[in-house]
Simulated assay, not measured.
Amino acid sequence: MSLNVEMPEPPELREIDPAEYDDAEVVGDTDYRRDELEGFLRDGAWDQAWDEWAAHTDVDEEEFAIVRDLELIRRFDFFWDAFAERVGYHAPGLPEDWKERDLHPELDSWSTVSSINAGMTELGQIVCDVLKDEYIDWESDYEPPDDLPDFS
């Protein structure tokens, strides 16, 4: 399947501590290099990742209209995880109580919610892969603490 919609602008990355995310596993360094990552997104990483994602996503035009209306793209977060030497991300998604909150008039099924949430996760991972594989060439400055247990 292919998604044929206008590509949105890349997200502006804000200063958020990734440890605040329920699904984040970030240890150590607090230099998340968001300014550099945002620059890479604007310099072509977003376009490249978007094209790859849009060519294969299961998100359809109607579902993407909901994504656009709810401004989910701008709520993505990408950050450098120096400990793991990877780009971490937090994908925006629709909450479990979407029905009670009446988030969008066209949002009417768990299938749609699941498709949107899965699509946002897939887009986030593709962006991370493009950033790491094509744009990032820095070495991590992470030094583990001296008091880590020895498991040898």
Rank of each mutant, 00 (worst) to 15 (best):
Q48C: 00
W138D: 13
D129Q: 15
V5H: 01
A45R: 05
R74L: 09
M120H: 07
L37I: 15
S2G: 14
Y89W: 05
E139C: 06
Y89G: 00
M1A: 14
D150Q: 15
E100P: 10
L103W: 00
E12D: 02
S2P: 02
S152R: 07
T112M: 09
G93M: 07
E38P: 07
W46V: 04
E85R: 05
T121S: 13
K99S: 07
D137V: 13
I66Q: 04
R68M: 10
D77H: 13
W50G: 04
G124D: 13
V67Y: 03
D97V: 10
E25C: 06
N4S: 04
G88N: 04
R42N: 12
V127N: 01
E36C: 05
G119A: 11
R75K: 15
W98A: 02
E96G: 13
D22E: 12
A49S: 12
V26T: 09
C128K: 03
L13Y: 08
C128N: 13
E36Y: 06
T121C: 06
A49F: 02
Q48S: 11
P18W: 03
G28M: 08
R74V: 13
L94C: 03
R86P: 00
F83V: 08
W80T: 02
V26H: 09
D43S: 13
I116K: 00
P10M: 03
D97R: 01
A65R: 10
V67F: 01
R75E: 15
K99Y: 11
E36G: 00
R33L: 07
P92E: 02
D133W: 09
E12C: 06
T30P: 00
T57E: 08
A54Y: 07
P92L: 11
D150E: 14
T112H: 01
V130Y: 02
V5E: 05
R86M: 03
E38L: 06
Y32S: 04
N117Q: 02
R34M: 07
L72H: 03
E61A: 15
A45D: 08
G44E: 07
V113K: 02
P11K: 00
Y21V: 06
R75V: 00
L94I: 14
D58Q: 06
H56W: 01
P18Y: 06
W138Y: 15
D97A: 08
P95K: 06
D17L: 02
E85G: 01
V27F: 15
C128H: 13
A49Y: 05
E52T: 13
F64A: 01
A65G: 09
E12V: 12
D108C: 04
N4C: 00
M1E: 11
E62N: 10
F151V: 14
V87K: 02
L70Y: 14
S115C: 11
R101P: 04
D77Y: 10
P149V: 11
L37V: 14
D60N: 15
V26L: 05
R14K: 13
W53D: 03
H104F: 10
I136T: 08
F64K: 05
D31V: 12
S114L: 08
E139S: 11
D137Y: 12
L94T: 08
F64L: 03
Y89L: 02
W46Y: 12
D23V: 08
P8K: 04
G93I: 06
R34A: 08
V59L: 09
S111H: 06
N117L: 02
D108A: 10
D77T: 15
A24K: 01
D51H: 03
R42P: 01
I73D: 09
E15P: 08
D97Q: 09
P11R: 05
E15D: 13
T57G: 12
